[in-house]
């Protein structure tokens, strides 16, 4: 029997892992952005996400109350313990993959945090309220990039089309709740799905893009079944703590 508290811990860890993993992926652009200004923009977003992840990890550690800290949760869990959606762990790809992924991801977080900020769990509500301001900007920034690329040059259009074909099968997981999500009170996942779909279709239309007709969807990340990409990401991210336990700087 899974207790209510275990469900809540899973839910909070899922939110934390989502933000940490995508934050880490985005941080791979630092120093490699297509132009200085966008290098800073994507790095800012990466930092926002890692900041959100820290809040969620701290809350999860407090809930677990078994000696876990934000650091042990981030650096000492294996891939199968990670509950992030698959779309967050995919390689950063080109700028089209990165911005389109951010757009899909931020749209789902935007509508989720909007609901969560009124949640009866006051800690979750507070984190959601703080994160929502950041996510609102991520959503605006990424949607504008999707539109620019789609309605841009032949090359940008072709690239974002390829990115759309690649990413689309991973979007289903963003709007399909896992059991530990459904167990949380006060979240209307049907509304989340509806809002997500409406906004995404509206932006894609502006970007002269149509989603693929094949709507078969990948899943598993939220249950700890990941793509091969997450292992490499964790190997890099956790290397220091694994090799030099307790290392600080």
């Amino acid at each position: 029997m899974i207790t209510e508290k275990e469900q809540l811990v899973s839910f909070v860890l899922h939110l934390a892992d989502d933000s940490l993993v995508l934050g880490h992926r985005n941080s791979e652009w630092t120093g490699h952005g297509p132009i200085l200004e966008q290098d800073i923009a994507i790095s800012n977003i990466a930092l926002d996400l890692i900041g959100q992840a820290r809040n969620f990890y701290q809350y999860a550690a407090a809930l677990k109350a078994d000696g876990a800290t934000e650091d042990t949760l981030a650096y000492l869990r294996d891939a199968m313990d990670y509950k992030n959606a698959l779309i967050a762990e995919l390689n950063k790809g080109d700028w089209a993959v990165t911005t389109l992924r951010q757009f899909f991801f931020s749209t789902s977080k935007f509508y989720l945090y909007q609901q969560l900020q009124n949640n009866s769990d006051t800690t979750l509500a507070a984190i959601a309220e703080k994160s929502l301001k950041e996510v609102t900007y991520h959503l605006r920034w990424s949607a504008e990039w999707v539109i620019r690329l789609g309605d841009g040059t032949d090359e940008s259009n072709a690239r974002v089309k390829t990115a759309l074909e690649y990413l689309w099968p991973y979007t289903g997981e963003l709007i399909t709740p896992a059991s530990y999500e459904q167990a949380q009170p006060g979240i209307d996942f049907a509304a989340l799905k509806k809002n997500w779909t409406n906004h995404v279709l509206q932006v894609l239309e502006q970007a002269l893009l149509t989603p693929p007709v094949n709507d078969w969807m990948q899943s598993g990340g939220k249950q700890g079944i990941h793509t091969e990409h997450l292992g490499y990401l964790l190997a890099e991210m956790q290397y220091l703590q694994r090799s030099y336990p307790g290392c600080e700087w």
Binding site: I35, L36, I40, R148
Partner: peptide, 20 residues
Amino acid sequence: SLHASDAAMAIENARDVYTR
């Protein structure tokens, strides 16, 4: 100063570069 493709992007870039 900064580079941007249009005014909207210039404001966003300014936000990211100069108001962090």
